[in-house]
Simulated scan of single mutants.
Amino acid sequence: MTPVPGQRDLVAALAEAHSRYPTLEGGSFYDEVLLEVQARTERDGAIGKADIGGLMLWKRLNLSTAWTRELNEWPDRKVRAITAEAFELARDTDRTIPEAAQAARSALLELPGCQRGAAVASTVLTAGAPDRMAVYDRRAVAALVGLGFPDPDGYYSRYMAAVCELVVKVNVMTGGWWNPRDVDKALFVLGG
């Protein structure tokens, strides 16, 4: 990916990429599972193993791993207790989004699949706080680096700080109302 030099070019690249993200309005059902899980988190305040399984299908992760076997051995009430705490932290508007992301990510460290890396944890957090969190994905990170940002090296709070910086740039330059998930969609498309 070629770096985008100016802020106008950067914002234009993000807006154009965001417009190519598959949407229900455009006839794509790509985000249908994510939206369904988000609705349940809004209603219930937590998610369980079945929802995490659905999110991993959406994220297209291999589920024949040690962490999925371990997660299946956990009682669902324990999974729901951990995700409820993480969602509460992610939604905490008294914290900046990167601070909330770091606290919520830390709350998920006990959960199988969330000990290393940010992919699974960020997907769970985005389901629980879709207006504040964004999905950490190798394609999104590649696009972020291509836009001149430092590699977050697997740190979700660093990724979210960069995403929030892009939210501000887009909103200032366009008068828009983007949130971190909008930036993550654009980065996902830009990163191929």
Rank of each mutant, 00 (worst) to 15 (best):
M133L: 05
D51H: 02
G54D: 11
P98K: 09
A162M: 10
T174K: 01
S19I: 12
A13S: 06
G26I: 10
A103R: 01
K78W: 13
Q115I: 06
A118P: 02
N72L: 13
D184E: 15
P130C: 13
A161C: 07
Y159H: 09
T174A: 01
W178T: 14
L89M: 08
T123A: 06
R69S: 03
P130Y: 07
V145E: 00
V33G: 06
A90V: 03
P5Y: 08
L89Q: 11
V4M: 12
E85Q: 12
R105W: 07
R105N: 09
L108Y: 04
I97F: 10
W74H: 07
R20G: 03
R60F: 10
T96G: 12
G128T: 04
N171R: 03
A100G: 00
R40D: 13
G154M: 02
G191E: 01
E32Q: 15
V33C: 14
A86V: 01
L147N: 09
L190C: 02
K185I: 03
P150E: 03
G6S: 15
L14R: 08
A121M: 03
G117K: 10
E16A: 13
Y21M: 11
L34Q: 09
V37S: 03
V124W: 01
V189E: 04
F149P: 03
G192C: 04
A162H: 06
D151L: 10
R158Q: 12
E110W: 06
L24V: 11
L108G: 01
